[in-house]
C-alpha cells in the first residue's frame, strides 16, 4: 500500500514548499497592497493574510491562507492552518469589502483549519460556519482561487465565492488523503489510494461542476512562478469582469446573490427514490453504527 497514484503525485505538487503562496500572488497582482491585520477580538493570525489594494485599476480586498516556503516560516505561519482568529479576521475583511463595495478575491491554500486546544476554546467550528453564512449573502462580487491545497472546512471558509477557480496542480477535498486513509483504510500509508478515491484534482472538480475554470500550469507553478501568477491574474480578471457586469446592472447585486445561491444550491449528487422506498423500509429498527466514515 505504498505505491504512488496520479492523484497522490498531484497532492505532492500542490504541497511543494517553493510553489507561490498567497502573498506572492497578492504582491504581484495587487498594486499598492496594504496588509491589514487582526480580528479586533483576540489576535492577529499569521496563517491568514488580508488587505486592500488595486487590481487592474479597481480597489479590491484580498484574503488568503498563508503557508511558509521553509520550515521556519511554516512554524511562524502554522503551516497555513488558521485558528478562529484568522477566520474572524477574514470575516472582518468580508464586511469591510461589503461596506465599501469592493470586490473580494480569495486565495485558498491550507491543509486544514488548525486543530488545537485554543482553537476549540475560541470556537473554530463557529468561526468557519459564520464565514460560510456571511459569504452566502455578501453583497459584493467575489472570486476564489485554489492555488495549492484546499483542505476541508478550513479551505471552504474563504472559498464560497461567485466564481471558484483552481490551478491545474492544486487539490481540493473534504479531508487530507492521510486523514481519509487513516479512517477508511485504517492505515495512513494508504494515502495514495485515498487521494485517488477522493477525486480531488482540478480536472475531477471541473467535471463535477464544482469549480468554474482550471488555470493551466504548462510548467508546474514552482518552476514558473511569475508566469503562473500572471496567468492566474488574467483568469481572475476575466471572471471578475463577468460578475461585475452582472452586479453593475440595476438590482444587479440581488441577481448576483441569486446566482451564487443557485451555484451552491445545485452542488450535490442524489436521486429521489420515493416510490421504491415507501413501504419497503423498516421504521425504527435499532442497530449500531460507528462514526467511522466522517471527518470535517
Amino acid at each position: 500500500m505504498s505505491t504512488t497514484t496520479p492523484a497522490w503525485e498531484r497532492v505532492q505538487l500542490a504541497r511543494k514548499a517553493d510553489r507561490p503562496h498567497s502573498l506572492d500572488y497578492v504582491n504581484a497582482l495587487i498594486n499598492g497592497f496594504v496588509e491589514l491585520h487582526g480580528d479586533r477580538r483576540h489576535s492577529d493570525d499569521p496563517a491568514m493574510i488580508a488587505g486592500i489594494g488595486a487590481f487592474n485599476g479597481r480597489t479590491v480586498m484580498a484574503i488568503g491562507h498563508q503557508k511558509g516556503s521553509n520550515t521556519r516560516e511554516n512554524l511562524d505561519r502554522n503551516f497555513g492552518m488558521p485558528n478562529p482568529d484568522g477566520y474572524r479576521k477574514a470575516l472582518r475583511i468580508f464586511r469591510h469589502a461589503e461596506k465599501f463595495g469592493f470586490p473580494l478575491i480569495c486565495f485558498i491554500d491550507t491543509p486544514a483549519a488548525d486543530p488545537g486546544l485554543g482553537s476549540e476554546e475560541r470556537g473554530q467550528a463557529t468561526a468557519i460556519a459564520e464565514n460560510l453564512l456571511a459569504l452566502a449573502s455578501l453583497r459584493v462580487p467575489s472570486v476564489g482561487v485554489v492555488i495549492g491545497e484546499g483542505g476541508s472546512g478550513g479551505a471552504l471558509a474563504i472559498s464560497v465565492t461567485d466564481r471558484l477557480l483552481m490551478l491545474e496542480n492544486a487539490v481540493y477535498a473534504v479531508a487530507s488523503p492521510e486523514a481519509c486513509a487513516a479512517i477508511l483504510w485504517k492505515d495512513s500509508n494508504a494515502a495514495p489510494q485515498a487521494a485517488e478515491a477522493l477525486k480531488l484534482t482540478a480536472q475531477d472538480l471541473k467535471r463535477f461542476g464544482i469549480i468554474d475554470e482550471i488555470v493551466p500550469e504548462p510548467e508546474p507553478a514552482h518552476d514558473a512562478s511569475d508566469a503562473t501568477i500572471q496567468r492566474t491574474g488574467e483568469a481572475i480578471e476575466r471572471h471578475l469582469g463577468e460578475i461585475e457586469a452582472i452586479a453593475d446592472r440595476p438590482a444587479g447585486i440581488d441577481r448576483l446573490l441569486e446566482l451564487r445561491y443557485e451555484k451552491y444550491r445545485g452542488i450535490g449528487a442524489w436521486v429521489d427514490e420515493q416510490e421504491e422506498l415507501i413501504g419497503e423500509l423498516p421504521v425504527g429498527v435499532p442497530g449500531t453504527s460507528t462514526p467511522e466514515s466522517t471527518s470535517d
Binding site: S137, I183, F208, D296
Partner: peptide
C-alpha cells in the same frame, strides 16, 4: 461525525449549501 468522506468535495460543498439556505 462531520462531512461524509465517501462523497469528498460534494460533501464539503453541502456545508456551503446548508448555510446558504439558512441565510
Amino acid at each position: 461525525g462531520g462531512a461524509r468522506m465517501h462523497e469528498s468535495t460534494f460533501s464539503l460543498m453541502q456545508m456551503a449549501k446548508t448555510t446558504a439556505a439558512l441565510s
